[in-house]
């Protein structure tokens, strides 16, 4: 169990990227990225940095997952 924490700290340190966006940018673009994921819609701009942020940030990632679930529920897809 303790090992998990240590691994995560080490992973996040070694996998640091020269340029990472923060939570504000992620929040700003999250709706566009959600449409892209749900509908395989074309993107006008690359959202790779948002994808990276979602892998690195627990807060944003749980919000994003819930957003996808909420949209599926609201539109009756699930």
């Amino acid at each position: 169990m303790e090992l998990e924490y240590i691994k995560q700290i080490l992973d996040s340190a070694y996998n640091i990227r020269p340029h990472e966006v923060g939570c504000d940018d992620c929040e700003e673009e999250m709706n566009e990225y959600a449409d892209y994921v749900l509908e395989e819609k074309q993107l006008d701009k690359p959202l790779n940095l948002i994808k990276d942020h979602l892998e690195l940030c627990r807060d944003c990632s749980e919000e994003f997952q819930s957003l996808l679930e909420a949209l599926n529920s609201a539109t009756g897809k699930k």
Binding site: M30, N31, E32, A34, E62, S66, A70, L71, A74
Partner: peptide, 18 residues
């Protein structure tokens, strides 16, 4: 208008819950 309107509104609601 970069996403569906509902997606934008839902994002705000989700954020409030968290």
């Amino acid at each position: 208008g970069e996403s569906k309107f509902l997606t934008w509104a839902m994002k705000i609601a989700i954020r409030n819950v968290y």
